[in-house]
Structures are given as C-alpha cells and as structure tokens.
Simulated scan of single mutants.
Amino acid sequence: MTDLTAHHVGTTVSDLEQAVEFYRDVLGFDVLTEFESSGESFATGVGVPNATGKFAHLDAQGVRVELIEYDPAGEPCTAESVNQRGAKHLGFEVDDVGAFYESLPDDVETLSEPQTTPTGARILFIRDPEDNLIEIITP
C-alpha cells in the first residue's frame, strides 16, 4: 500500500473572493495560488456533472487550505453546531487565544468568548463568511 501524506484541507464556498479576503486579512494566511479547473475529467473526478471550479490555496503556517467555488453551486450544508453528524471544522493554533479574540474585527461571528477546557487548552470557535466553523486553539 502507498503511504499517504497530507496535501491540503479544503472547504467549499459560494464566494471565493470574499472567502480569500477573510482567510488572508482576518486569519493572516498567505495566498499561494489561485486557479480554475474544468472539463470532463474534472467534472467526473469530483462527481458533479459539468462542474467547473475556482480554487485558492492559502498557507496556514505549513497547512495548505484549499477554498473552492463550484459552478454549478450545490446546496448549503453548514452545521449549526459542532456535535451534528457530519459537522466539520478547520482548526488552527495560536500562541494566545485571548489576544487573537481581541484582535478580531467586530463583524466576525464567535460561538463564545475564549474558554479553557478541562485539558487546559484554550479554545475559540468562529465562523467564516460562509458560516464554516473554525477552531482557534492554544493547546
């Protein structure tokens, strides 16, 4: 069997430009590349007839985050809470969750103020402009 290595974590968005702005300007990620893909092999590969995709890859300190805007767009499947089956989130580490929280623009939605878990980790969940959950953690 071939050994697997991580390449990226991805999330589908409806407005790539707005999502890139958030991940770049609010989270501080560098844009590595932006590109488009289409054609029969792409549509067959993603299992969406006649699909095209606009992509952005961003660097989250060594983790490649892939944002994808599809045409045709699918139905939203945003989880209302993290305990829903199939719920997903992206997790990113910072040195100080409290300082990160204080630096957020007022229009960024949070689930709560930073919390300290029984393991001693400090966590904060925020939502991106597409309502995707993002965990900010200081382990």
Rank of each mutant, 00 (worst) to 15 (best):
Met1Asn: 02
Met1Arg: 01
Asp3Gln: 13
Ala6Leu: 15
Ala6Ser: 04
His8Lys: 07
Gly10Ile: 05
Thr12Lys: 10
Val13Trp: 07
Ser14Asp: 13
Asp15Glu: 13
Leu16Tyr: 07
Leu16Lys: 12
Leu16Ile: 10
Glu17Gly: 09
Gln18Leu: 13
Phe22Val: 02
Tyr23His: 08
Tyr23Met: 06
Arg24Asp: 14
Arg24Met: 01
Gly28Ala: 10
Phe29Glu: 03
Val31Gly: 04
Leu32Met: 11
Leu32Gln: 13
Leu32Arg: 11
Leu32Tyr: 01
Thr33Ala: 14
Thr33Ile: 05
Phe35Arg: 12
Glu36Phe: 05
Ser37Leu: 14
Ser37Thr: 10
Gly39Trp: 11
Gly39Thr: 09
Glu40Met: 01
Ser41Gly: 01
Phe42Gln: 10
Ala43Phe: 12
Thr44Gly: 01
Thr44Cys: 00
Gly45Ala: 13
Val46Ile: 15
Gly47Ile: 05
Ala51Ser: 12
Ala51Pro: 06
Ala51Asp: 04
Gly53Cys: 11
Phe55Cys: 00
Leu58Gln: 11
Asp59Lys: 07
Gly62Cys: 08
Glu66Asn: 03
Glu69His: 09
Tyr70Ile: 06
Tyr70Pro: 03
Tyr70Arg: 10
Asp71Tyr: 08
Pro72Met: 09
Ala73Phe: 01
Pro76Leu: 09
Cys77Arg: 15
Thr78Trp: 09
Thr78Asp: 01
Ala79Ile: 10
Ala79Glu: 08
Glu80Tyr: 00
Val82Ala: 13
Val82Trp: 03
Asn83Lys: 05
Asn83Glu: 14
Ala87Asn: 05
Lys88Gly: 06
Lys88Ser: 12
Leu90Lys: 07
Leu90Met: 12
Leu90Cys: 04
Gly91Tyr: 02
Phe92Met: 05
Phe92Glu: 03
Val94Phe: 06
Asp95Val: 05
Asp96Cys: 10
Val97Ser: 04
Val97Pro: 07
Val97Leu: 11
Ser103Ile: 03
Ser103His: 11
Leu104Glu: 08
Leu104Phe: 10
Pro105Lys: 06
Asp106Pro: 02
Asp106Trp: 04
Asp106Gly: 14
Asp107Phe: 07
Thr110Ile: 14
Leu111Asp: 15
Ser112Arg: 08
Glu113Asn: 08
Pro114Gln: 07
Pro114Ser: 08
Thr116Val: 15
Thr117Val: 10
Thr119Asp: 14
Gly120Lys: 11
Arg122Gly: 00
Arg122Ser: 14
Phe125Thr: 06
Phe125Met: 10
Phe125Glu: 07
Ile126Glu: 04
Pro129Trp: 12
Glu130Thr: 07
Glu130Asp: 15
Asp131Ile: 00
Asp131Ser: 15
Asn132Glu: 00
Leu133Val: 03
Ile136Trp: 06
Ile136Gln: 04
Ile137Met: 05
Pro139Ser: 02
Pro139Glu: 03
